[in-house]
Amino acid sequence: MIEVNNLTRKYGEKVAVNNISFSVEKGKIWGFLGPNGAGKTTTMRILTGYLPPTEGSAKVAGFDITKEPLKAKKHIGYLPEIPPLYNEMTVKGYISFVAELKGVSGKERKTAVGQAIEKAGLSAVAGRLIKNLSKGYRQRVGIAQAIVNNPDILILDEPTIGLDPAQIIEIRELIKSLRGEHTVILSTHILPEVTQTCDGVVIINEGQLRASGPLEEIQKKFSEENGIYLETEPEISEDELKGVDGIKDVLKSGNGYKLFWEDEEKGTKFLNEFIRSKSLNIKEWKRLSSTLEDIYLKIVASDKGGVK
């Protein structure tokens, strides 16, 4: 759905985005992570056709954004960092204007506007002037305008910034509900937001791509700990586990054990055989992994430490 190839954007001498490539599958939600000034907004602006790239290309919904901008833009819904709202308009009037601007034809417009307003939870304030709305509602209006043309791709620049915790949860739920129908890219620096809502992640720092891929893959790749957490019924002893082939180390943890592989394939096989032979019930078997926060901090900190 989205393909970014060797994208570079310079502002004068300053390189804001440096040779970034990644791709996002249809129907998934991807998080765009990075500290302030990392190049998130610039990349999003390029993807939406607001800024042209200095080098490289971006394909959105099959159209090159610089070569066929009008066709590509038809498939994009975009919420900029500051929602682009006309204060003197009513919510409904504004959404209707955006629908018209995005080429939603006369007959469908009324339904499209109604749906966008409902999805974004704006029915109660549809007739009010935008300037009289609270920040949370303004953000919702921003989301409503982004989804009004039912775009294949949604690009949301910090959709939950400046909202109170309850509003953040609401907006997050709204974004989750868009999964499947829409491909969503959202930028944020709230890490739990990514773990909770996103299928994949792109981490950039200082304009450079540090990691990209499905969340699990990233967690697996950047995890220092190659092992599992195992809890069985009845409990087994540490020594017994240490005797299993392919297991390097065993550590007691809560009601179970952390097992570290010497050889994952071999270890998994022998551990399974061992459990079967002892007729144990597995209460929990999960891969040990670093949290996204650990991974993110590791990546960003390594850049700061001059490891380049």
Partner: peptide
């Protein structure tokens, strides 16, 4: 100033 130009330039209008 208000940033609404971003809406205009990212819509499918010339």
């Amino acid at each position: 100033r208000t940033g609404t130009e971003e809406l205009l330039y990212t819509s499918s209008v010339t």
